[in-house]
């Protein structure tokens, strides 16, 4: 299935775009998505950390994704 992944902050610089499309197996998890993204964009691995948000909520690696989910890469936040 195809998942659209939004990117912000330094992730947008790494992807060179504010979103990327990722082909995931059916019932693909957030962990699988991170693994595929890191293969395509190794610079992700150099970040202090990053989270994945699904439908505006932080998601654990075990969360199962659906094609219509709003998925986003959340690099270390630095508001305030």
């Amino acid at each position: 299935m195809k998942v659209n992944v939004l990117a912000f902050g330094i992730a947008k610089d790494i992807f060179g775009s504010s979103s990327v499309s990722v082909e995931l197996p059916e019932y693909g998890t957030t962990g699988k998505l991170k693994q595929l993204l890191e293969e395509s964009y190794p610079r992700l691995k150099k970040l202090a950390s990053y989270m994945v948000a699904v439908n505006n909520e932080y998601a654990s690696d075990e969360s199962v994704l659906a094609a219509n989910n709003e998925v986003a890469i959340i690099p270390p936040v630095s508001g305030g």
Binding site: F8, G9, I10, D13, K46, L47, A48, A53, Y58, A72, I74, P75, P76, V77, S78, G79, G80
Partner: peptide, 20 residues
């Protein structure tokens, strides 16, 4: 927790705070 990001702009470049 709030997904807001701060980029510092210097004379010789810019840095996303806390990214690395």
């Amino acid at each position: 927790t709030v997904p807001i990001w701060k980029k510092e702009i210097f004379e010789d470049g810019e840095v996303w705070v806390a990214a690395h």
